[in-house]
């Protein structure tokens, strides 16, 4: 789980990039609190071989990245 709430870009993408680089997880949950981070992580996920599903979680967004 990457908790990137409170961070503006590029930090959420950097945090996801590091998590993927470290463990190459089959699935990764990411929490963010702004739409810009959602869009940027979705683009990064697509470039990195992951599919991203997004759901709203109160005021936050939960992205579930799954390896294609």
């Amino acid at each position: 789980m990457v908790d990137a709430r409170g961070y503006l870009c590029p930090m959420p993408v950097v945090m996801v990039q590091e998590a993927i680089k470290k463990d190459q997880p089959a699935a990764l949950d990411v929490l963010v609190d702004n739409e810009t981070a959602v869009e940027n992580i979705k683009r990064f996920a697509a470039h990195s071989g992951y599919q991203a599903a997004v759901c709203e979680d109160g005021d936050d967004y939960r992205l579930t990245l799954t390896k294609k």
Partner: peptide, 19 residues
């Protein structure tokens, strides 16, 4: 659109994202 002059070059350098 999140237009940003810095973000364009930064994301290209860091993530190869030219958006």
């Amino acid at each position: 659109s999140r237009m940003c002059m810095v973000g364009g070059l930064r994301d290209t350098m860091m993530f190869k994202d030219m958006h």
